[in-house]
Design a protein around this nucleic acid. Structure first.
Lengths: 211, 211
DNA sequence: GTCTATATCCCGATAGAC
DNA sequence: GTCTATCGGGATATAGAC
């Protein structure tokens, strides 16, 4: 029924504009703290349009979540890990995870916000629930190859490994402010960033290699 | 001027009641999402009292933060690490950190909330800024003893080590919902908890031992 | 110090014209 | 599909009696 006409590109463009601004607003202030007026005020659109396209504030928030989670998933696919040795593939996966979190603090903040809300929206979205992440399959493959090649000697569940990789990459960004204040560290410092990146990779690779 | 009379213990008791309920409310809904009415409604007090004791909603939130950060600091002191070997002391520190986060999800949630607010309140509080955590000193001592005893061969900054310990312990709790949903894992499961505890400790201890 | 009642503002959502 | 104007509820904060 709905007209999907290429003659009117403004519609989709407006939708995308709203989404982009909303992502910033929700990442910055959380779900309760975000203001629909503030979102409308930052673009050449009115508040009415937001309700026209997304129905409600929560509907908009959910659309933002889906967009953001889709982003990291798309990039994961491009890593081309099979051509690397198990150790190199693992390092590449860790480096990718580190860099992605570092470059996308809004993603990290939105995930934090969603966890404050007990993941209720993520669970509610069919799209997001079916994002049966390919990371786990990739990691499982790396682990299997590494074991066969005699390079890895530690038994570990792929999901557990994913957690061990994500945790420090996430924490560095999510807890930047409290950690930075309490221990007088600027976690944005490039020197520190490179040091942490190497440290995280060395720690995890070392764990898998050791018997 | 203010009467601090032992004849009226109700005052301090009321204050503590408000604090305890507020901690739950702020941890559950965040700063913007928390409702002053909801806090008053859960105790035998009125909303008026909250403003009487804490001045404002933010004042109450700040008091909660100070109380919560004080809690973990007090416990850190009781570990008695000097009597243990460097490796055992490190393991004890990791186990303590793991257990504390696991047993105090509200603490984790409040820290997440504060980071969404860019740590503005934590920075603003003299009390919290002066919480120059003793963890770093404890870890530095462990590292030094371990190096002298020839048990640790990796050079690492104590603050970095603290981050590597805290990150997985924190993440496991803070991201419980999104991670649990996306990967179909119940991160509250006791079996999983023990496995993760051992895995985290082994990973970090292994990293320090390796050259 | 503790209560009831209320001021005041702000925000999500909608009405209705074009 | 896009605008202006506004409703109606609910939230923080306060007034003022006892």
């Amino acid at each position: 029924m709905t007209e999907i006409s290429p003659r009117k590109p403004d519609a989709e463009k407006t939708r995308q504009n709203i989404l982009a601004v909303a992502r910033r607003e929700f990442a910055e202030h959380g779900l309760s703290g975000a203001r629909v007026d503030a979102i409308a005020g930052q673009i050449n659109t009115t508040k009415r349009m937001i309700y026209y396209y997304f129905g409600s504030k929560e509907g908009l928030y959910l659309a933002v979540l889906e967009q953001v989670y889709g982003g990291i998933r798309a990039l994961e696919q491009t890593l081309d890990l099979d051509r690397l040795s198990p150790v190199d593939a693992l390092r590449r996966m860790i480096d990718f995870t580190f860099d992605y979190h570092d470059a996308n603090p809004d993603f990290v903040r939105l995930v934090s916000v969603e966890n404050i809300h007990h993941g209720a929206h993520l669970r509610q979205s069919e799209t997001l629930r079916n994002l049966n992440s390919t990371v786990i399959a990739s990691l499982a493959k790396i682990l299997e190859r590494g074991r066969e090649a005699g390079q890895f000697h530690t038994e570990i569940d792929p999901v557990d490994l994913h957690m061990m990789i994500s945790a420090p990459c996430f924490y560095r960004v999510s807890n930047r402010y409290t950690f930075g204040t309490l221990f007088a560290r600027d976690l944005n410092d490039p020197v520190l960033r490179e040091r942490h990146k190497r440290m995280i990779a060395d720690t995890i690779v070392g764990y898998l290699k050791a018997g």
